[in-house]
Design a protein around this nucleic acid. Structure first.
Lengths: 335, 335
DNA sequence: ACTTTCGATGAAAGCGCTATCATAAAAGGC
DNA sequence: GCCTTTTATGATAGCGCTTTCATCGAAAGT
């Protein structure tokens, strides 16, 4: 049964009548031991309720079997989903996930990275390519393996998605429907290269079509549904209101639809609304949201395997760009 | 600038002309040092780019400054929110968060707990009170500090919410409006004491009112909006369809509203729908959802402080029950 | 039969830090 | 001024594991 003091490696060794080294091998490289010894050690371990001390193991071996992730926030469908698939992919390989959030602050990201490095993580998952000099320096000197998500950068492995193309796709769709005056609700652009890229994509598509996207038609909001609603309200209050609104994230588009409907405007009859992300809700709302599908779960999964490849020495700063796709539903129509 | 090999404590000590012990103190208990020594050590540390090795520190001190959390899934508004507030409260006190998910499997929870204990976490946050014998044994022998969330249990500190009362509140509200035939969509009841309690609360309110909740009117579904839709479809296909539907989580209620509307049924005119959770979306959907507000963010925050109190030796298995509240909006009306 | 190789185990030196104990200098106490 | 505290620092023994390196039979090669 359970011993009083926590069992250590030597206790198991004594109990099994072998050396500590043998027990260590039994736990980490069972293949090296004679079958008989192995079972004897395992029996003792079980009887004593022995659990390897990960701390000591990490110190002695130099590998912590722990991966760190720094995301803007955990409280977002998008990042939660990425983390869920990232975490379960890691768990399958015996790695644990240490998470930190920076809530859109460059300095907080630096601090989080510093803490994670101090914890001796074997690898790090970061969001986006924009970061402070200080963070970059920490990363470089620590030589920890890193995988970037959403947006990549030279010298880093990355799993990205073409945010600019995403913006372009929705914009082109709307332009194709005949919209000339299109508004956009985006997240605060500081320290958010994903939103900047999406905005850039929209702008690019419009310019190509000879249209303008004046500042008045771009509303920066906090990344919530309420933000979307507020942003849409601002755009609808304009003297020359847009005939279509693009949400930099689906949440914005959903808030936008609500605002329009609350004002008695029919969507898409009187206002077309589209988003980017394709979160679960978008498919089933009324009207179903036209959006661009971002393979969130896949990002986490591929990020995990990319990072593990880097750690194991295979993997040469691989950069995977995941495909995105315009999903036309019912929230958009000709003006 | 950055040295080639990673700087260790002794390097800083040598550089500053002090003993390793002094450097250790400079990092951990600056108050003990003469100001002059302290600044000298700090300068050396900065110059060498020294970062404390958390692994070694943990081994030597016996505290890892790491907290583990095992949740059903990260990919859920609810748990994501709890984790976000939990994590940021911990970060403020210098603790890091190690997360694991069990995806509704008792065995996976055990495995996750085992891994976290092996990692030497100083504390553990768990969801609900139901777990395997094996998990309980691990917890007991490890003597790690634990805080339970949502549902509590004797011998554990906990931050809970009265799930049964939540179910009762919505049911009473509906009964008060005159509904006699009420259906419920719940999550799979195995290994989900939160859903079981909510169902029990609904049942209790109905019985008190002399009403029945036959099995046919309870639909178990996976915890997604699509599940809610499917559950509602099943209830609406019944020969004697209910006049009101309760979602065991808001997501179910939202899916339910969608299903009803898709069938051309007006909510709340022809069907009342209510949920439990009060997620962001519920307030702004059309019609706005009647639900019970669960203070999710607060759960995480209080769980953090409760756990830290346990760890520091203050805190005697405190049990905090957070208040919930019926929020009547537009999705419910008299039948 | 006699090395040579291999397979299985043991001995022991760290991994980088903290914490205890000892010590030396400075500060009080009367 | 001599003794007792206090304050600041040093010396050093671990924390519990992994990992060479060494060892010792047994299997294999010739």
């Amino acid at each position: 049964m359970a011993s009083h003091r926590k069992a250590r490696l030597v206790d198991v060794a004594r109990d099994a009548g072998v050396s500590p080294a043998t027990v260590s091998r039994a736990m980490a490289q069972p293949g090296l031991l004679a079958l008989e010894t192995l079972t004897r050690v395992r029996d003792s371990a079980r009887r004593l309720g022995y659990l390897t001390d990960g701390t000591a193991r990490a110190l002695a071996s130099g590998r912590s079997m722990t991966i760190g992730a720094v995301v803007p926030t955990l409280d977002s469908t998008i990042f939660a989903r990425v983390l869920q698939s990232f975490q379960s992919a890691l768990a399958r390989e015996g790695y644990q996930l240490l998470v930190a959030s920076h809530e859109m602050s460059l300095a907080a990201e630096t601090e989080a990275v510093r803490m994670l490095l101090a914890r001796g993580v074997d690898g790090l998952m970061l969001v986006g390519a924009e970061r402070s000099q200080e963070t970059v320096r920490l990363l470089a000197t620590s030589e920890v393996r890193v995988v970037l998500t959403w947006v990549g950068a030279p010298d880093f492995a990355a799993v990205t998605v073409d945010n600019e193309a995403a913006g372009r796709l929705v914009a082109e769709h709307l332009i194709g429907l005949g919209h000339r005056r299109i508004g956009m609700i985006v997240g605060h652009l500081a320290f958010n290269d994903r939103q900047r890229a999406r905005l850039a994509g929209v702008r690019q598509a419009m310019e190509r079509a000879g249209l303008a996207l004046p500042d008045a038609l771009v509303s920066e909001q906090v990344l919530t549904m309420a933000g979307g609603r507020a942003g849409c309200a601002r755009l609808l209050d304009l003297a020359e209101r847009p005939t279509a609104v693009i949400g930099g994230i689906d949440l914005f588009a959903i808030g936008g639809v609500q605002e329009a409907q609350a004002r008695g405007l029919s969507v898409p009859g009187e206002l077309s609304v589209a988003g980017i992300d394709d979160i679960e809700f978008s498919a089933s709302m009324m009207p179903a949201l036209t959006t661009v599908r971002i393979p969130t779960a896949q990002i986490g999964q591929v990020a995990a395997s990319t990072l593990l490849a880097e750690i194991s020495g295979q993997g040469r700063l691989e950069h995977t760009r995941l495909p995105i796709e315009l999903v036309v539903r019912r929230s958009t129509a000709a003006p």
